[in-house]
């Protein structure tokens, strides 16, 4: 098995977190996931602040980002990442319920790397999430400086 890199899942809904982790577990990716429960936590994680102050150096291999979240929403997180020269190389995949054109358009304008609408059907959901995890977490070679599995 190739080296696994950290995946940051930003998702406020615990049910969605559990389903996503379950889906990723299908390919044994679940243990490599750090979960942030809203945009603020995600930014703390990326900037190593607050409860993530002690986190080691390095960016995650990919950020799986929900759009609608309390406090700081996914679009703001995306904008922050893509405008920060230290973060902008992190691949960001939107993982969201919204297939609204304006969300799609805005995410791509901000420089998102992929946009995945969560299917309602669980099998499709598992398929979609595990493919995303496999591709970005395993297949894709992340930019230098990503956190590698120890």
């Amino acid at each position: 098995m190739a080296d696994l890199k950290r995946i940051l899942l930003v998702e406020d809904n615990p049910a969605d977190v559990e389903l996503t982790l379950t889906a990723l577990a299908e390919h044994n990716l679940a243990n490599e996931v750090d979960v942030a429960n809203d945009g603020e936590q995600a930014l703390d994680y990326l900037y190593r602040r607050g409860k993530y102050a002690m986190r080691g150096n390095g960016n995650p291999a990919v950020v799986l980002l929900d759009i609608k979240m309390p406090k700081v929403d996914g679009l703001t997180v995306l904008r922050t990442i893509k405008q920060d020269k230290d973060l902008m190389t992190i691949p960001v995949v939107m993982l969201t319920s919204s297939r609204e054109d304006r969300d799609l358009a805005e995410c791509y304008n901000l420089g998102v790397n992929a946009y995945v609408v969560k299917p309602v059907n669980f099998e499709e959901f598992v398929g979609a999430v595990s493919k995303v995890g496999l591709f970005w977490g395993v297949l894709n070679e992340p930019p230098p400086g990503s956190v590698k599995r120890r």
């Binding site: 809904n13 049910a15 969605d16 389903l19 379950t22 319920s97 969560k118 299917p119 309602v120 059907n121 669980f122 959901f125």
Partner: peptide
């Protein structure tokens, strides 16, 4: 859509 996904998923 989220609760539907949860129903479907947890079933």
């Amino acid at each position: 859509r989220a609760p539907l996904r949860h129903i479907s998923g947890f079933v």
